[in-house]
């Protein structure tokens, strides 16, 4: 069966755009897991809250970029408060406790959004309008731009982690909390800051995605599910792995949707998840424990 070239190219662009937005969401999620062992089921709802804050700011000021900044800042502060008040007391307990707690937070946030902003969907006007011809379609420039914005945010964050003083604190805490604490790094503060950064990244993706389909109180659900697949396939707590996995999974789905319906194409990401759990449970993009001698997580918990 011949696959039309136009479909391959269109789906490649779709896959890359979706992959970059997903990578931005998943980065926050994997960062939070990597440093605190918290599986944050409310991450998608932080995306949603960010989008609502962005929509409200745009309605008041008319500026997309201001809304982008305000949403990221507001949700970062909210995330820090949430971590300090709700999740910090649960650290070190059975992982099920944090899963249940974040699931509860997710329900509360959805209900709050419904009460605060009402049931009607909100609009975020895209800052870049216009389309370019791509075979039989007119492809919106904004979709392409979102991939670049997401890439720029992830890149800036990577540089911060690699070279920034506080970025080094975060990496040290991720590698070994006790040793980091012994070296004078304020571990609880790092935890709170990382949760705030993760929340801000979620809010940024909410504002970026808002113009593509409207803002509603349930928009986070789709993100949460897909981001979890990405985080597991990329390796729990592995930032680079999650970014690669987001692009890999999105492209896999996009290419599968050339042959089958896009709703059936989603199956391939679940297959990737199952195969990863069976054959490389540490993730596709991290070294296996046997090849590296000992994994950092093994050191942390032994």
């Amino acid at each position: 069966m011949a696959i039309p070239f136009d479909q391959i190219l269109i789906q490649t662009v779709n896959g890359l755009v979706n992959g970059m937005i997903l990578a931005l969401v998943a980065s926050g999620l994997t960062l939070i897991f990597g440093i605190m062992d918290v599986v944050n089921f409310a991450h998608g709802d932080l995306v949603m809250l960010g989008a609502f804050v962005g929509a409200t700011t745009i309605a008041a000021t008319g500026s997309f970029w201001l809304a982008f900044l305000v949403a990221a800042l507001v949700i970062a502060v909210f995330g820090a408060a949430l971590q300090a008040s709700t999740l910090r007391p649960l650290l070190g307990r059975d992982p099920l406790t944090t899963i249940l707690a974040t699931f509860g937070i997710s329900l509360v946030l959805q209900k709050y959004a419904l009460w605060q902003w009402g049931p009607s969907a909100r609009k975020i006007q895209e800052p870049i309008t216009g389309q370019f011809a791509m075979f039989y379609l007119e492809y919106p420039w904004y979709r392409v731009a979102t991939a670049f914005f997401a890439g720029a945010i992830i890149g800036a964050f990577w540089l911060f982690l690699k070279y920034g003083r506080y970025g080094i604190w975060i990496r040290a805490t991720m590698q070994d909390r006790i040793m980091a604490s012994a070296m004078g790094i304020p571990v609880p503060l790092v935890h709170t800051a990382v949760f705030a950064i993760g929340a801000a990244m979620a809010a940024a993706s909410g504002v970026l995605f808002g113009p593509l389909g409207g803002v509603t109180q349930t928009m986070g659900f789709d993100f949460t599910l897909r981001a979890f697949i990405v985080v597991v396939v990329g390796g729990m707590g592995n930032l680079g792995g999650s970014i690669l996995a987001a692009i890999f999974i999105s492209l896999l789905e996009a290419y599968a949707s050339i042959i089958v319906s896009p709703s059936q194409a989603v199956i391939v990401s679940f297959m990737a998840l199952i195969l990863t759990l069976l054959f490389r449970p540490t993730g596709l993009f991290v070294p296996t424990p046997s090849s590296s001698g000992a994994c950092w997580r093994c050191r942390r918990t032994s």
């Binding site: 039989y136 979709r143 659900f221 789709d222 896009p262």
Partner: peptide, 18 residues
């Protein structure tokens, strides 16, 4: 073209319509 309920990004579906 059937699109599942609650699909956040319909572009993969809509971009196949030609």
């Amino acid at each position: 073209t059937g699109i599942p309920l609650g699909t956040a990004d319909m572009t993969p579906f809509l971009s196949k319509i030609s």
